[in-house]
Design a protein around this nucleic acid. Structure first.
Lengths: 235, 235
DNA sequence: CGCTCTGTTGAGCGCCTTCAAGCTTAGTGG
DNA sequence: CCACTAAGCTTGAAGGCGCTCAACAGAGCG
């Protein structure tokens, strides 16, 4: 059973009123009086790749807003293998399940250095009771998670290795238009696509030979979008 | 592209105050004054197997509470093949996405004769604004959907055909303890497990030969729970 | 230099897919 | 009542794809 480190650097107490990405985050619709209801400090943390926000099964004290970086949500199978069920980027929320009194459903592991806001459960619950403005945002977050989960199943767990990989590249490229796609190792790649890591490696090698992607640095890829879409459509 | 019928029999206007499964449904926590806020009729429908509650991409006017029966949520791949992403039973809600202004994400098809309450979007939104009691229930429903989606991925889309099928039987058996498990054809079975229908058929045949399940009637199975759990654990 | 960790590549095998034929059952019309 | 049909299920055979085991290369680090 994997065990991830859980260290984090404290960046300060978040000042939500002046949040730089306020239109993206959970508290984006709050008005001035609402902020008075926040009576616990909201910590802002910087977390290194490899560290975990939380572990599956722990009793959830907080949810987390991802301000930057990349986080994977992992589930473990009885035999110890792991499956990545979702990726979280800027604006996403991890640990929504604590709002319905459940322990964490996944282990949340940082893949690319991340800044997160740690929102104590009590704060969100209090706000949720007092101001309806938060509800719409919360539902939006539930929806996004659910949508991504369904999408993950049909797009990344269906069809041949070639197609799954092509679809993954297209998805990641769409998330950060104009930027190269950054992955985090062949092992994780396999865990996302439901493939062995050797198969993931081989398929990437094949894509590189075919010119569908170029690995400019280790785990950094420039993609040929149209060509990848063709792979998704091929016989 | 599959096309499902969408006929339904009108059973009457739901009387939520006296709902027989009130502790299960979305409106379970409402108090007497809340019901005054429901100003549109809530239809109660009976729907035959094969008919659809709604189709993917349609603009959602309503969500649906399943009162009885079984409903599958289906997504279609570009090549026309379909993937079942979730099953809904008594107490579950279909079409939550309309609450965040999205068109339906799936096609919802009845597998076993179902009774459903059709909740106009406006009703739920109105109630959601006025009474916080609905919020907890709504979040609970979002959570259940998300939990099932994640579970579906790790349990039913990972590992060999034998293990997937064993896990499916265990899941369905857990949903209706004491009752035999009812499936709805080998084609759907494949679509749930991410397998071809021939493989689904073969694997079921193998299970029957091994005594893991007994098909007492077409598509009705009595399961040997412990033996199926052993399959899930085997090398 | 040796160690570890990650990624690559090879070889063999087993499972699943695909194509195809035959079977059962139910429905239809003679 | 029985042919005929159609749909769903089963089963066979062949082939390919991905898994597994394994060896090896390169990078980073002590």
């Amino acid at each position: 059973m994997h065990r991830y480190r859980t260290d984090a650097a404290w960046l300060g107490t978040a000042r939500c009123r002046n949040c730089a990405i306020r239109d993206l985050v959970l508290f984006g619709d709050l008005r001035d009086p609402d902020f008075g209801l926040i009576q616990l400090p909201i910590d802002e943390l910087r977390i290194e790749p490899g560290a975990a926000l939380y572990h599956v099964g722990e009793d959830g004290g907080s949810l987390y807003t991802i301000r930057s970086g990349l986080v994977k949500l992992v589930q473990f199978l009885p035999d110890g293998t792991q499956r990545i069920v979702r990726l979280l980027r800027c604006g996403a929320v991890a640990g929504l399940e604590v709002l319905v009194g459940r322990p964490y459903e996944h282990t949340a592991v940082v893949l690319q250095e991340a800044e997160v806001c740690q929102l104590p459960r009590a704060v969100v619950e209090r706000l949720s009771k007092e101001t309806p403005r938060l509800h719409a945002r919360l539902m939006e977050r539930w929806y996004q998670s659910l949508h991504q989960a369904d999408d993950w199943l049909t797009a990344l767990s269906t069809g041949s290795a070639r197609r799954r990989l092509a679809r993954l590249f297209l998805k990641l490229a769409a998330d950060c238009p104009g930027e190269p796609v950054r992955l985090s190792g062949r092992e994780d790649l396999g865990a996302m696509l439901g493939l062995g890591m050797e198969t993931a490696s081989r398929t990437i090698a094949e894509f590189k030979r075919a010119g569908l992607v170029r690995e400019t640095m280790p785990n950094v890829f420039v993609c040929d979008g149209p060509a990848l879409e063709a792979v998704d459509r091929e016989g």
